[in-house]
Design a protein around this nucleic acid. Structure first.
Length: 417
RNA sequence: GAGAGUGUAGCUCAGCUGGCAGAGCACAGGGUUGUGGCCCCUGUGGCCGUGGGUUCGAGUCCCAUCACUCUCCCCA
């Protein structure tokens, strides 16, 4: 047997209604916020991700599906959506037509990590970007959009964690403070963190080793190192979140994985999954567009992981149940031609119909109709055949009526209203 | 990349110190000759992950291997 690629997963017929619901709900929420959909390809030149995400990040260094195509060019499956979206924006000069752009896309991302619960090598993300506005209210709107998607989908147990990582100026300052702080305590740090102290001291804040975590409690906070403009920006973001009544928690030790973030950073965490498993996350990136050869415009975006979001909502919601308008039960050989006529007529009128052509007992067909969630069953047997009629049974009320073949559609459609 | 656990029916899992391969659900048929959900009866369905070893005999013990799951790391 040829099996799935490790870390990939099939979404099976019993789950697709839930997935369709999540995606259409996300679309509706985002359209309500004025976002428009963009559908970039799932593959880009490797160089785009190297420049966009940063060459020294884990994602680019060891998690990308990178290969050389037959022309000798290095290509990569997208590990995240922002780089591709911004590439399209720059390439087609979209910001010239719309100086404020709100875009979203939904689709699979690829990262070659070790799979575990809620972590796949191919995973679906809803991704949204607001480009061309650095107002703090725009940050709040991005957070609100992310929050709205999740509440519209019906996820529970979620918490919005928010922080500001400052601009490159404040960060240089903060970095020095951190290094000074940890330098005296180097011997108590874990080996990873000793390495991080030089390379990227902010990573220490995220360490799960008890000794490090204990020390981090007393470490200086980024929020204390913000310069005046950044401090004011963050204050207004938080004020806006209050006005929007979005439950949030200041998480001054939260740092995000991608280097390009400036100022506002946020994560949506599932309380039950714990801090290490974010359902969504995002932040502001005021230099990324320019770094990708575009205009000097700011941006803020977020991504929501659908596999993880789906863990927060029940599988058995009635709306995820299979539904069909009519099951047509054919009884006996002679019913075939008339059955085909009826089935075809109903479908042409927008009614969803399922039927079986191989002989089955009526009992078995009733069971089947019940299983697939048919609202009505149309029975065609010898009696009906002789009179050019059908018997229609309402599966919920058990009422049965007989109607001539030409009256079926009218009867069913009259029932709808 | 490091650690732990689990592989037995389509699914969830029992299977004791080695001795005929099991249950529930699902599926099919019947109880009701043309009427669903509940109930009852019957049936289909297994290279016991794979390869080797120990043994009269291995689902069970040993070795190897593969796959999956979980934890750490990192993220969505």
């Amino acid at each position: 047997m040829i099996t799935l690629v490790k870390g990939f997963h099939d979404i099976l017929p019993d789950e697709t209604r839930k997935w369709a619901f999540m995606m259409s709900t996300a679309r509706e929420s985002l359209e309500r916020f004025g976002f428009r959909e963009i559908i970039p390809p799932i593959m880009e030149k490797t160089e785009l991700f190297q420049r966009g995400i940063g060459e020294v990040t884990d994602i680019v260094e060891k998690e990308m599906y990178t290969f050389e195509d037959r022309g000798g060019e290095s290509l990569s499956l997208r590990p995240e959506a922002t780089a591709g979206v911004l590439r399209a924006v720059v390439e087609h000069s979209l910001l010239r037509k719309d100086p404020l752009l709100k875009l979203y896309c939904i689709g699979p991302m690829f990262r070659r990590e070790r799979p575990s619960k809620g972590r796949y090598r191919q995973f679906f993300q809803v991704n949204a970007e607001i480009l061309g506005d650095d107002s703090p209210y725009t940050d709040a709107e991005a957070v609100a959009a992310a929050y709205s998607i999740m509440t519209d989908i019906g996820a529970t147990g979620l918490m919005m964690e928010i922080n500001s990582v400052g601009c490159p100026n404040c960060r240089a300052e903060y970095r020095k403070l951190l290094q000074t702080f940890f330098k005296d305590r180097t011997k108590d740090l874990c080996s990873d963190c000793r390495r991080r102290l030089e390379a990227n001291p902010m990573r220490i804040l995220d360490c799960k080793v008890p000794e490090c975590a204990h020390m981090v409690k007393d470490a200086p906070l980024v929020t204390d190192s913000l310069d005046e403009p950044c401090r004011e920006h963050f204050r207004e973001v938080r004020e806006a979140l209050e006005i929007l009544e979005i439950p949030n928690r200041l998480e001054p030790r939260m740092v995000r994985g991608l280097d390009y973030y400036t100022r506002t950073a946020f994560e949506i965490v599932h309380e039950e999954l714990g801090r290490s498993k974010a359902v969504g996350g995002g932040g502001r990136y005021d230099n990324l567009l320019k770094d990708l050869g575009g205009p000097d415009a700011s941006g803020i975006g977020f991504a929501i992981g659908l596999e993880r979001l789906s863990m927060g909502i029940p599988d058995d919601h009635p709306r995820f149940r299979r539904r069909i308008d009519v099951y047509v039960a054919l009884l006996g050989q002679g019913a075939g031609p008339m059955g085909l006529t009826v089935v075809n007529m109903l479908r042409s009128n927008g009614i969803s119909v399922e039927t079986r052509y191989s002989p089955m007992s009526l009992k078995a067909q009733m069971k089947l109709a019940d299983k697939i969630g048919a609202r009505k069953v149309i029975m065609i047997g010898d009696d009906e055949l002789a009179r050019r009629e059908v018997t229609i049974r309402d599966m919920r009320t058990k009422d049965q009526t007989t109607v001539g073949i030409d009256g079926i559609v009218k009867l069913l459609q009259g029932d709808e209203s």
